[in-house]
Amino acid sequence: MERARPASEPLPSRRLTPDELPQLAQQIRVAALRMISRANAAHVGTVFSCAELLACLYGRILRVRPDQPAWPGRDRFVMSKGHGSAGLYAALALRGFFPRERLDEFSVDGGSLYGHVTHRGVPGVDVSTGALGHGLALAVGFAAGAMRQAAPWRVYALLSDGECDEGSTWEAALLAPVWKQSNLTAVIDYNKIQSLGRVDEVVPLEPFAEKWKAFGWDTREVDGHDIPGVLEALDPERWVPANRPRCIIAHTIKGKGVSFMEDALLWHYRTPKGEEYERALAELERSA
């Protein structure tokens, strides 16, 4: 048993143990909170809903090499919900793809980390996103490429629920099972809030899992903040569908981790500043 580390202390660069992942998730939240606040940016709620998902992916599931970001054998990750960029950049920095200080370059004048995910000059980012509904098709293309080359690397895409309104998402969803893409996993951050309101009130997606199943995906629903459950679902060794892609519908809470941000549309937009920032930070540090 390792000694308990302070929450803010860097985690080791090796593959993390499941016990270390909650700490990575909280570090992602803290880093993103800071980035978004100093940049007067938005989308803090959308980062918080997928912090555990990113922590599981970058801490344990994805076979990537931070010191060799373009390693040809790496798993490909598509952050289809490109507005969650602060979370992705934080995860990459915390895992050692680039120095943490570079997170200060998020969404500011002259910065290099754009408000929506960019691959340009950012180690570890395979594809840029930001317009919703693009990511799954890119992932299907990557998966087809791996299959063509009989390469062992896998493809993961993280989608928002809102982008399941896009027809293009379903074009890709139709095709991946036809091409028997068992090397592809779509994870949906189902936080139940989209741009102008609750998913149930805007364009309801339910019965959501049934839709993916009907399209031919091996589909599971998990609590997206329950790390053991997420790991169980994500681990290709533990869940190996034959000849079809996997879909993980992760039930999450927008703004998860800060009481006054949870399940609130406002924090899709509002920048945490001043006292709100301090309270949010205190809550995150307390829970870590």
């Binding site: 395979d126 509904g133 890119l138 299907v140 293309g141 990557f142 490429g145 791996a146 293009s168 095709l175």
Partner: peptide, 26 residues
Amino acid sequence: PAQFYNVGVAEQNLAGVATGLALAGH
């Protein structure tokens, strides 16, 4: 046959899948 794909009547997917395949070295 190994170099041919029909993605169906879905041009957004056509462009996206093509990009993924290209970035994977094709």
